[in-house]
Write a protein that binds this DNA or RNA. Structure first.
Lengths: 174, 174
DNA sequence: ACCTGAACACCGTTCAAGT
DNA sequence: ACCTGAACACCGTTCAAGT
């Protein structure tokens, strides 16, 4: 809050005319990070979505912690995670769709949070850097693929979207 | 720090005679939480280990965040996660064993962190409680089982370890 | 050996008062 | 409508000085 105020050339208290609390501000920040990312987040392929979310978060310090907080504070406000739920739970009971999405979500955010917290410790010279960027990506992908393998597989789309095998039913009750 | 000092009937600064930093203290706290838990953590069955870790963390406020921090700050110091690596990676290349364990670890810590952060927000009356304890456990289990299904299965101890079906590929370059 | 006192450089938030 | 000034109740950390 105080840093932000300084950057706006304003007293800390002034922020509270525009925002009710730091937490409310973070909701806005989280939405901005995910919606206005240079790399858009896929809404078709869960593997790609996971990679895209990581790519959107990595360059922004502590963003994974922010997103995790917002997901706990205001579930369902962050579209990409909501989208994941529809993607993975295409023909699953609603509750299992939610569980499936949360499984992948927790992994993605947990993984990136660890990367970023480690980066923060390195920046502060508390630990020394032993990170290989390419290896991190490989490790991330390994987990994503393992999880998707374990979850009930969604529509194997390919060109088979010609015949509507999926009942695409039940738009979730608002 | 200040809370702890107060509880010890001592000035805040006095703590720094015994501990180098808050972070060092947290390493000790994390070890204590996992080692001296009333419910011991299984070292045989990964599913049970995950459930045990959650059981050990749930009653201690913010413990999942503490453990996550310590895992980033000092990887490999927390035994149960190290044990998970050996359990899951019994006949896997070292790097994949690590990745497998981290996949499950991120899920477990991410899940419990969300539960605890939500509990904290409820305690502070910032959000209202809509949590069903039994449902949470079911959701947790769902994710654990999905992930273990997706990961290369460890020794199915019974009789199937007779034929070495896994090609145990090219040990990765260090 | 262990602690106090006091300071340093921080937090998020509130609120009367100014313009 | 938007901000200042000043305070409130907090942080982790350091360090001379006490016992």
């Amino acid at each position: 809050m105080r840093h932000l105020a300084q950057r706006l050339g304003v007293q800390p208290g002034a922020l509270y005319y525009h925002v009710a609390s730091k937490q409310d501000l973070l909701v806005g920040v989280a939405e901005h990070i995910l919606n206005d990312s240079p790399t858009a987040i896929s809404a078709n392929d869960p593997t790609q979505a996971a990679l895209d979310i990581r790519a959107a978060l990595l360059p922004i310090r502590d963003s994974a912690d922010v997103i995790s907080f917002v997901n706990a504070f205001r579930p369902d406000t962050l579209i990409p995670f909501h989208a994941l739920e529809q993607l993975l739970g295409a023909q699953l009971p609603a509750q299992q769709a939610r569980w499936a999405a949360q499984t992948l979500t927790h992994y993605v955010l947990g993984f990136v949070a660890q990367e970023q917290n480690q980066a923060e410790l390195i920046r502060a010279r508390i630990i020394t850097d032993t990170t290989d960027c390419a290896a991190s990506e490989e490790a991330f992908r390994y987990g994503v693929e393992a999880i998707l393998r374990g979850l009930p597989s969604p529509v194997q789309d390919s060109e088979s979207s010609l015949f509507p095998s999926t009942p695409t039913r039940s738009r979730p009750a608002e």
